[in-house]
Design a protein around this nucleic acid. Sequence first.
DNA 1: AAAAACTGCAACCGCTCCTGT
DNA 2: AACAGGAGCGGTTGCAGTTTT
Length: 250
Amino acid sequence: MGRAPCCDKKGLKKGPWTPEEDKLLVDYIQANGHGSWRLLPKLAGLNRCGKSCRLRWTNYLRPDIKRGPFTAEEQKSIVQLHGIVGNKWSMIAAQLPGRTDNEIKNYWNTHLKKQLRRMGLDEPPLGPAAGCPAARHMAQWETARLEAEKRLSMLSSSGAAATTLTAAAAAGPLPPVDATKDAVKQEAALPGDDSSAASNEVEPADAVDEYQMFLDFAGEELGLFHGRHGGFSLFPPIDVLAESSLDTAF
DNA sequence: AAAAACTGCAACCGCTCCTGT
DNA sequence: AACAGGAGCGGTTGCAGTTTT
């Protein structure tokens, strides 16, 4: 598939960003939004490729980026999420508001990996295939959550719902649909799963019911998880989650 | 004090996926 | 259905700063 042309073929600048370049980028995005990343450098007066601009913005210049060291809670979340989804840094980042995937990736590679090794723990097995029963439960939970989100997002995009899941995510740390697309695809590809095809015509009321079922399921699963892991929480308590998500989304 | 080794982070590269035609 | 362009993601690299010898 068409690969983005390499920057150096066009004589574009690479390497560290100067404060002047940062300012140009920030000023432009604040005034116009990023729009097409490919066109942005030209419009903003930058001698950079769009890719470089996007990276600089998402990893460094975005105003909502949280700076400073990771908290113990964030560390715990990263370790747990990594055990569940593996190196899906964007998915992990979606659970940690203000943190970027690049930052989390770096933190994992430089700090947490070593820390786990020092503690005598090998790197945990990656992905939903992880052998630990709790991880399997979480993987099932994640699958169900993604399915519910997928349906909800279809609803939203068709205009049937007043707000999007992103709004719900703002109320609680459910990730935006974008961040979960890999898993959604996996889910959609499951043999014998005809729900994704049928979901195109899902009725609003059905979606609400399904989302509620998902929340109920998640509640049970999380209860189990809490019980086994001494109160660790990836997500807010389920009653809060249910209340805020449903209230905001509907 | 100087050199070597190590560490952490910003940025780049190349691949895959998504979307429009 | 096939193709092309654009966006996003994960892996890797380069280098400045810090620590150790």
